[in-house]
Design a protein around this nucleic acid. Sequence first.
DNA 1: GTTCCACAGGAAGTGCGGGCCT
DNA 2: AGGCCCGCACTTCCTGTGGAAC
Length: 424
Amino acid sequence: MTHDTNDSPGLFDKFLSENRIFRDREVLRHSYRPHILPHRKPQIDQIAAILAPALQTETPSNILIYGKTGTGKTASVRYVGTELESVSARRGTICRVIHLNCEVIDTQYRVLAQISKMILGEEDPSSDKTRIHIPMTGWPTDQVYSELKNQIDTSTGVFIIILDEIDKLVKKSGDDTLYNLTRINTDLSRSKVSIIGISNDLGFKTFLDPRVLSSLSEEELVFPPYNAPQLCDILQQRAAIGFAEDALDDEVIPLCAALAAQEHGDARRALDLLRISGELADRGNGSKVTIEHVKKAQAKIETDSMVECIKTLPTQSKIVLYCMLLLHRAGQRIFISGDVTRIYKELTPFLEIDVLTARRISDLISELNMLGVINTRLVNRGRHGRTKEMWFDTSTEKIWEVIMEESDGRLAQVDEQIVIQIMR
DNA sequence: GTTCCACAGGAAGTGCGGGCCT
DNA sequence: AGGCCCGCACTTCCTGTGGAAC
């Protein structure tokens, strides 16, 4: 099976052969929802306590939830939501949980239309012909609002609307949506609506009208970041299902947890690290994930985000970076702003772009430093003045690649002769 | 002790495009 | 359509700086 062959039938054989590392890779993605959420019991209990009145068809308080990415906000809320729905179904009451992600659905119209769509979605279409689907575009907003109100009020239950990444909605289209939604209860006679807002950004409250804020944050919850031991438990739990038995070295999970804990206790990051470590081991045909794989995975995540960062750089920054790469290639491990500016000034006439001043280049250099693409250090060289030294502390190969393929390949077309002449 | 280099980086201003109100 | 304001990318002008060289 492992014999060398160029025949295409054998091409995928080695990938299809029984997998020694993974049992179920999906478990290690952050989209996977586990049945138990370690270290979130207090928060889950609290949410459950706040939502419990819904089972008596009373209106639960609105909740505002804060926490950094990867702290289990969405997972906890979804968990409580599904539990609530199933318990209420057993008791014969009506509780509907509607989950929206405001990063995707980011205008008032789309939020209202989506809620309506999700309410009607599961119902037997023949049961009630008086209600119409709201088109995804076209109606005036107040008509959408009143139609939504009708749809909600035809049942006698409690609707819990979860607005995930609510800060995105507020920043993009203001707080009108929230104002209307928080007041909807006053227009309803039979059913009730309660809102849960989830936000990454603690400062988003300042964008809200005080009336909306006080109504929305009847209850507030903060999800603290996980620490390393907690991340260990989370990874342990997923690894038990996701990885084959004995596929992980003992130190692997603690290392993933420790690295992710340094980065603000982000469980997503920890899971990515573990999954990518596994993928690297898998592709390397190993039978065990080792701490070497974790280190490689960490490096891969870092370069991947570096590549992403450089790709999105403005053209002028890319050119400044290119000048630094030229100096680096010429053997200068450390270079100063004067060098970079000189190369830049000599290079730019060959490119069809505006030529920036040294002052502006100085700012661009600082930005590159802030982004972690380069390192800088202020130095005084006595007679030779005060300047900024800079250097790359990662391999420049990836940066070269990205710079070459970006900016319409303009930099890749720079004649080698010109470069030699400039670098003299 | 004095000079003076080679910049850093603050302040203020310009020009431009986008969003918003009227 | 027109006016207004805001943020941005960038410029011009400027003052400040620490230590090697004199």
